[in-house]
Design a protein around this nucleic acid. Structure first.
Lengths: 335, 335
DNA sequence: CGTTTCCGTGAAATCGCTTTCACGAAACCC
DNA sequence: GGGTTTCGTGAAAGCGATTTCACGGAAACG
């Protein structure tokens, strides 16, 4: 099967460098209390022999595997969404630079004793990054056990675990601000499902902006959607019906924005002349829409990179604080 | 950091089952030449102790890591594409069922001595699945070394490695057949970049169908695109210009199809009344387009699952043959 | 019935690295 | 200056499986 070129081991390095294997280990693991000369000798020996550590052996001896699990919930059409691919890219990049590997765990998370749950608690990985926190019972359990973990997305209550998230509220605020600057005065919002913190935060950003720019506030300008194109379409219709002077809609994601645009155009109005529309995510959909959808972009790779950095910090025993990354308004044709 | 509930080892199992550790190993690794009674005893002991194998130890002793790498090229906007997330899902599922883990390697593959290349050859994984084979120098090298690998996508020449792919030609054929059945007679094609085997195969399928249904064949009906919306838009314009009686376009992906539709509508014609359009991929884009895009769906999860099964078979030392999965025509509004 | 082959089994070596422990030398203290 | 710390170092004991090897009994042979 595989060839056997017999890779060098500590034994050879130790011999060549004229030190003990223990010292080789110390040097290779960055233990500082080693004589500079020996460090140099070992480093050179490693170099000339082309030594690469055997991870399995290291893992067995140390109990640390060098693996970080990225857990993705299996259900849903999660996989239609390029989001997780992008964030995983960011994670993987940072981990690789730090000699750690990314282990992908795709599985349903509902049950506390699911294979994944067991796997994680079995010490097969050093830490875990959750890409979604809807079903957080497992996360809570692990957090309670003090298992190194980082979550993507803001948790509901003041949970005890570190997380990374985009500045959803800030992004929404910027979107509304842009609409205001364009002279829009009757600005509506179509939210996502409100049991979701991202949806909440985007709504909060909208509300904060409306208040701070003293635009019209009204229940009739707030429509609760469910992220789907359908809901964007229907709710835009409703909003237009209730508010004849409506001149802008901020949608909590791109897909709903596209639905809303369809509804507006069907009603014989034009975008953005009559009604401006802004989405959220800057998804592939937004990038390939016509007219080009103005939207709020998240730094998804950045989220992944931050998450990875945080888990590494946790493993080093450092105190970590959650990170909120800024969003960027991408102005195209619809607003 | 982590707790120490001291997991059971072979030693405990052996004691409880009244056999040697060697026998425990034999049972747990499916060696058949063990007395049925002892197998039962060991199995029960494993059960009552809740034993789970320590992978690091197994890896060290056996030289097999239980890890399969999934390699994705880092450059490009690969990550905008949900494709790889979906296929990885399929891979992961099958591997998990077989007690193997999915290791994600995201990295540039151009150089033969890139970190990833080194990593793979270092025996840190048992096998590898490549999700893209543009830059196949590394793949060829590994294949030459007899390293267990599977590739997604049809390789150019008769390369010596196993691959999985969708039946691109068959899907294209079905699309054209559908157009023919609808009474279309002047059917054009917009291809992808032709250095790409998928683009080639889709074109081949188109050509085969045109020939077999005896529709008009002409260079002027074949436009070479580059997968982008822009190229779909421009080429559709050109095709309409050259062929006044054009009544259908088959596009090699959804994005170009969307571009083509825009061009057609701009020219004052309607889809599908005047000109029918079919895409390829059934991407998120297609699923959320209006009017609904008729397109060809690949079984992407299936590709992943097949790839995983193949690598497992290779590891078992079995002979494997490449797999071509059928595509399915998804009929919506545009054709 | 004696001899040879076959087979299931356990003892023990091994995989390559980490880490504890103890030791001698150097540095510190009063 | 004697005694105590501190510090760098190497020997050696694991880590928890796998796998080779040799043994003894059963089966097969002549």
């Amino acid at each position: 099967m595989a060839k056997k070129p017999k890779r060098p081991t500590y034994s050879e390095i130790a011999k060549l460098a004229g030190v003990s294997e223990a010292t080789v280990s110390r040097v290779l693991n960055g233990d500082d209390k080693v004589d500079a000369e020996r460090i140099k000798a070992v480093t050179e020996a490693v170099e000339t022999l082309g030594y690469k550590k055997n991870r399995a052996a290291a893992a067995l001896a140390s109990g640390r595997t060098g693996l970080i699990a990225v857990v993705i919930d299996d259900d849903l059409s999660v996989f239609q969404d390029p989001f997780w691919g992008t964030i995983t890219n960011g994670i993987s990049r940072v981990l690789m630079e730090n000699e750690m590997q990314t282990l992908l765990l795709v599985a349903p998370l509902d049950k506390l004793d699911s294979p994944v749950a067991q796997y994680l608690q079995r010490g097969e990985v050093d830490g875990v990054i959750f890409l979604q926190l809807q079903k957080d019972s497992l996360i809570k359990k692990l957090a309670k056990q003090n298992f190194p973990l980082v979550v993507n997305g803001t948790p509901h209550s003041s949970n005890p675990f570190a997380y990374v998230d985009s500045d959803n509220a800030g992004g929404a605020y910027a979107a509304v601000e842009h609409l205001v600057n364009q002279g829009r005065s009757c600005i509506a919002v179509i939210t996502g499902e409100l049991n979701n913190t991202a949806a909440e935060q985007r709504l909060d950003g909208y509300l904060a902006a409306i208040k701070s720019f003293e635009k019209r506030e009204s229940k009739s300008l707030i429509a609760t959607g469910n992220w789907s194109r359908e809901s964007g379409y229907e709710l835009a219709k409703k909003l237009m019906g209730k508010n004849p002077d409506l001149d802008a809609i901020f949608c909590s994601n791109d897909i709903m924005a596209l639905g809303a645009i369809a509804a507006i155009q069907e009603a014989g109005k034009s975008v953005p002349e009559d009604i401006a529309v802004i989405g959220f995510d800057d998804s592939f959909l937004a990038q390939n829409s016509h007219p080009g959808l103005t939207t709020v972009r998240q730094d998804i790779v950045g989220l992944g990179m931050e998450a990875a950095k945080m888990i590494l910090a946790i493993l080093r025993g450092e105190e970590v604080h959650s990170e909120i990354l800024p969003c960027e308004l991408v102005i195209r044709a619809t607003a």
